Simulated scan of single mutants.
Amino acid sequence: MLNLDRVRALCAVAQAGSVAAAGRILHVTPSGVSQQLAKLEREVGAVLLEPTGRGVRLTPAGELLARRGDQLLSHASGIEAEIVAMRSEVVGPIRFGAFVTASRLVLPGAVTFLLSRYPVHVTVTEAETEVTLESVSRGRIDIGVVDSWESAPVEIPTELESRLIHRDTADVALPADHPFARSAVVPLSALSAMPWVAWGSGTAFHAWLVRTLRRQGFEPRVDFEASDISTHLAFAAAGLAAALVPRLAVDRPPAGVALVATEPRLYRDIYAVWRADTGGPAVRAGVDAVEAAFGSGEAQDSRSE
């Protein structure tokens, strides 16, 4: 691969007509220019200069490389200018990753805002928080939207920056005819006899539900597993199970379901995360857009605390 500094030295000789004059253009000694040219000749495997009188002249190979070298340096300069622009302007791709509820309810508004304001291309990948964190760490996505329950906190890798953008709460979904359905608050410990519907075994949400209920002194009986909140609510409406449901995921409960605040209260913090070495204007704009979308009416909890 050609070294641009050595190509620049050859182009300077072609422009100035001598090694000494090229050194003055490049602000290096003639010896320094000669060393660069010698290394360039070894790189390309051809003689680029030949002596003529007290000076030098370019060989046909040197003239070809100097001519193409000018084009190469111009192209490289253009790329550098684009990179500088990316550091100061919101341009280029913005790749999001988010857990299901954020992807469904919040990201569409954030993406719409970004596309209306900036010349960007935005993509969204839906995945569990652990997968999203790994994808950000490995550079597969630029911004992750992840959640961390107080009773089962997620460890954010040290190489990632993060911003807390929302706090969510979980309620318990009960059949509408359950004795606690009209209560303002239900102690989770009072629901030890209930069957539960949860996310699939091995998922973070399943582990969170089991861990949360164990802390209330009982082993939950998880009879039903499903990966969609609407299915959880359907089992509750049918009188078959209780479910722990994040408020962000439910606007209004379906008929036959009562959503009741829990004791203890169940909170999760939602963060935007990104790599510390890629936090340029596009990433900052993306994080701001997601935070604003969480703060809009569509992402706000409609039930009182």
Rank of each mutant, 00 (worst) to 15 (best):
I94Q: 02
I94K: 03
F96R: 04
F96N: 03
G97P: 02
G97K: 03
A98Y: 03
T101M: 05
S103C: 10
S103Q: 02
V106M: 07
V106Q: 06
L107S: 05
L107P: 05
P108F: 09
T112H: 10
F113V: 12
F113S: 15
L115H: 07
L115Y: 04
R117D: 00
H121M: 04
H121N: 02
V122A: 12
T123E: 10
T123A: 10
E126L: 09
A127C: 00
S135E: 09
V136D: 01
S137I: 13
R140H: 07
I141W: 02
I143S: 03
V146K: 01
D147W: 12
S148R: 10
S148W: 14
E150M: 08
S151M: 13
A152L: 15
P153A: 12
V154Q: 12
V154D: 08
I156V: 06
I156L: 04
E159F: 12
L160E: 06
E161N: 02
L164F: 08
I165M: 11
H166Q: 12
R167E: 14
R167A: 13
R167V: 14
D171L: 14
P175I: 15
D177Y: 06
H178Q: 15
H178M: 15
F180I: 10
A181D: 04
R182G: 11
R182A: 13
S183E: 09
V185Y: 12
V186E: 10
L188D: 03
S189A: 14
A190V: 13
A190S: 15
L191Y: 09
L191K: 10
S192Q: 12
S192R: 14
A193I: 13
A193C: 10
G200T: 01
G202H: 01
F205T: 05
V210S: 08
T212A: 12
T212P: 09
T212H: 08
L213F: 10
L213D: 03
G217A: 07
E219F: 11
E219N: 09
P220H: 11
V222S: 05
F224H: 04
A226T: 00
S227M: 05
D228Q: 10
I229Q: 02
S230G: 13
L233C: 01
A234P: 03
A236M: 07
A236C: 09
A236P: 07
A237D: 11
